[in-house]
Nucleic acid binder design. Structure first.
Lengths: 313, 313
DNA sequence: GTCTATAAAGAGATAGAC
DNA sequence: GTCTATCTCTTTATAGAC
């Protein structure tokens, strides 16, 4: 009968290898896209045999889902601090900018989560988006993944993003409000729900403040708003010619359109002034947020050329 | 020396087989998704050997690109008649609805064109989206594909969509305007450019009529608007929980937000009234437009469950 | 033109030795 | 736990007979 220390050590070792597997998998996905993720490649990367992987994950799919959970948590982590912004409209704009920045900074992660497979996309998005009610069916290891992911890369990513997005908005105002919006969106939910609720809360406030048409269904508005952000990110990742104007200009116009310009009365056409770079400069937006990542430089670059391209001989 | 008739017959036969190949490929993509498209499957479907395919197409990629060209042309075909709508705002709304309807009615086609690979997406989108100028580098067989595609399926699809989308708008007004907007967007361009120009023209008119902020850059607005539409379609195809509200409600809110409600003074909250079905009824929108297609019923269905899922044992 | 046959590469997953 | 070896399956693409 082995001492308890031995059991713990073995458990730690097992857990460590699991992490190494996920690390390697993440790197492969980031570098070559999800389609190129194979058990063999992972095994090669960590210098184990393919068979070993199956002691930790039942299938390639399980690895993919673990990666997804990390990604969701990572995205949520960039949202949470923004919930502090006092003005609901500015808060939503900051969330929108952070969302786009995340997608641009982590293209393959974003692809995996939101553009790859309905089963992946649906996984961490429990029964979310169901207006408000809808009994919360807890997603499992998602929040735990947040803690883990935060330990290596996403913590940095989150902070960078937050500072970048909050700069120039009402960031300072959050210290003045004190109580207002510090609820971190019930943490026992899955990240998808949590992120959604952050947005919905801001929307409710906006409506309460009379800055949103009283007849507007916030759930519908939220979905359309989300679609706009997703569309910007998705086109940016997939369409080589997409923003012909600087990305942040397009984002600015979208945010102004959905939320109205001037929270306190700045001249309209806020995005107009930004129109100077006039050529795809995802860096203009992403450069602010996504510089201190552990991800490969290729990920923060403009466009991955033509990564996917699964099988070719 | 064979008579000319023999040469022609052989040429016709060769062309016919080429069409059969593309037909089979299209069916496979529609049924099982692009990832499942393989030379063997095509060969099986047309009851030829795989080797024969290589006499008509150099590679699987070439087939994919031919499919893309068809898809672009098909989408453009649903746009062209809408250019007749007199009121620019209503025209843009109709275009938006048609765009979403197309994506919902032909999910795998839409996926292939706009969500699969940057090289596919960029192909038929020549140097488009480049604001206005940018010397037109002619894309090759795209327009020819329009003629071909129109011959079998897309003509019906286009007409159905047009009638559906135009109903309830200013369709009748087009007969009153006469001259206004009948330019079919220089036909020697590629479909991507053509579609874009239809939209840009409407936008310019909108701005000229003072219904769009004078400081707004129409190219930026157009891209953000497109992103919204793409986001709606893309989320609908990928995210199982996406529109919790009926799809057309979300589309309605988006269009109203971008274009303002009431072109002539109808009460605001135009989308509110639509909120009744309250459950994903893509049919509510797509049912109108996409009923008489030659595509498999699965394509017009709500969601393809989990089609892609490339390799599994 | 079309076929058969096959090369060459890669995938996921497993059995069984150690 | 880990590895070796392998099974099974699938893919693109080609060579060469007919």
């Amino acid at each position: 009968m082995p001492g308890m220390g031995i059991v713990e050590r073995k458990s730690r070792q097992k857990q460590a290898l699991r992490e190494r597997i996920l690390d390697a998998a993440r790197r492969i996905v980031m570098r070559e896209g999800f389609a190129a993720l194979s058990m063999r490649k992972i095994a090669d990367a960590i210098e184990y045999s393919p068979a070993t992987l199956y002691l930790h994950f039942a299938s390639r799919d399980e690895i993919a889902q673990a990666l997804c959970a990390e990604g969701y948590a990572q995205l949520l982590a960039t949202f949470v601090p923004l919930a502090q912004i006092a003005d609901p409209a500015e808060r939503l704009k900051a969330l929108g900018r952070a969302y786009v920045a995340f997608g641009v900074a982590h293209p393959e992660t974003y692809r995996l989560i939101f553009m790859e497979d309905p089963s992946y996309t649906g996984a961490a998005l429990g029964g979310a988006a169901a207006t408000a009610g809808k009994g919360a069916d807890g997603a499992d290891g998602a929040v735990a993944a947040l803690a883990d992911a935060g330990a290596d890369t996403s913590a940095n990513a989150a902070n960078e993003t937050v500072e970048g997005a909050a700069a120039g908005t009402t960031a300072a105002a959050s210290s003045a409000s004190g109580k207002a919006n510090l609820a971190p969106a019930k943490p026992d939910d899955d990240p998808g729900d949590a992120a959604l609720h952050i947005m919905l809360r801001a929307l409710e406030e906006l409506k309460a403040a009379g800055r949103l048409s009283a007849s507007m269904d916030v759930a519908v508005w939220a979905e359309a708003f989300w679609a706009t952000l997703h569309g910007i990110v998705a086109l940016n990742l997939t369409c080589p010619v997409f923003p012909s104007a600087p990305l942040d200009t397009v984002v600015g116009v979208a945010l102004d359109t959905w939320l109205g310009m001037h929270p306190a009365g700045q001249p309209q056409g806020a995005a107009k002034s930004t129109r100077a770079g006039k050529k795809k400069s995802a860096e203009a937006l992403a450069g602010l947020h996504a510089e201190a990542h552990s991800e490969s430089p290729a990920e923060t670059g403009v466009k991955p050329a033509t990564k996917p391209k699964a099988t070719s001989a």
